[in-house]
Amino acid sequence: MMPHKYNDASRHKFTKKRYRVTNWSEYNESLRQRGDLTIWITDDALKQWRAPRRSTPGGQSKYSDLAIATCLIMRTIYKLPLRQTQGLMRSIARLMGVEVPVPDFSTLSRRTQGLKLPEKPRIENTEPIHLTVDSTGLKIFGEGEWQQSKHETNPKRKSWRKRHLGLDLASGEVVCAELTLDDVGDPTALPGLLYQIDDPVSRFLADGAYDGAPTNELLAAHFGDGVEIVIPPPRNAVLTSKSPDDPSPRDKHISQIQAHGRLAWQANSGYNQRSRAEAQIGRWKAVIGPKLRSRTFDNQKTEARIGVQALNRMTELGRAKFERVG
């Protein structure tokens, strides 16, 4: 049984905690700004809309990577096909009174492959990263369960991609992300996530799928022995032979669970904060969507990176601050 499901039958005995938003006016304004076109189409993007002249032999690109990325961000936010994206950008250029050419849908599709996205500065934060990771499946084709049940159709083979996200608990920013095939396990994708992080990490939280010596060794190699690792051991986990004299972090977790119970360990270790990674997964599916629109794997990777930039931009505009009231 997963740790957050432990003793689930008795959870009705626990009083539900109540919170209130302390910065409602600022947060409310940030929600409005998410629909503001000037947030997504900046003056810098318009100034750099055309591609710079190339100095090497070959064809000259008409649109810069920033222009293509801007169009794809609008497509992601408003969940549009490429042809409707072209129409939206044409109308925006006309309403803004700017004389810029708009990429057609075939250009957007072709340039999506291997697109180099402009680097975005991280949300300013002086504290080390508290990293929590999680993954989810994103659908790419195949009918849903409701369609099969309603019309009694035969189930068809579905295909998925696996989305891995790393969230900084301090800033709320997605600091690393990876898109893999559906048969890639979470520990296997972890090195690709960690290589994207240059800042120091003081704490790492993940679910039991990451439990094991390879994960601990990988984290120590990237962030040093001082990183605090909070991963729940399985129910049948046993202490190592070195635990009496030199207990590992995993041995300490096992001892605390044996002494005080798993629910107490979750609260004392801060493991409950990992639920924010699950909330980020839910935010992705609500804002970006539960499926990928691109056909090829390379284009799907670009589409996923675009989604990360959109979510981080929304976080930068403002997020809710809570305080407990009961």
Rank of each mutant, 00 (worst) to 15 (best):
K62Q: 13
L169N: 11
N272M: 06
N236A: 13
A310D: 01
I68M: 08
A170M: 10
L219E: 07
C176L: 04
L108Y: 10
I229T: 13
R122K: 13
F141L: 08
R111H: 13
Y210V: 12
R20P: 03
G58W: 00
L46I: 15
T70M: 05
N268E: 15
I257L: 00
T15G: 08
P249F: 04
V100Y: 04
R53W: 05
P52E: 05
S243L: 00
T85A: 10
G282P: 02
S269T: 15
E228C: 09
T42C: 07
Y63R: 06
K139Y: 08
Q60R: 12
E145K: 08
F223P: 02
Q309P: 00
R34G: 15
Q48Y: 02
G318A: 03
W24E: 04
V230H: 04
R293P: 00
S106Q: 12
H222Q: 13
F105Q: 12
A220R: 10
K116L: 15
C176V: 09
A206V: 11
N272G: 11
L138C: 07
V175P: 06
I39R: 10
A45S: 15
R276K: 02
T302C: 14
F141N: 13
R54N: 11
F105P: 05
D198K: 13
T42V: 07
N154K: 14
K158Y: 00
G224D: 06
E124P: 05
D298P: 02
H253K: 01
L311C: 10
E119L: 13
E323M: 05
K16I: 14
R54V: 11
D198H: 12
E303S: 07
T188P: 02
D245G: 01
H253N: 13
G307F: 04
A51Y: 06
Q266C: 15
Y78Q: 09
I73P: 00
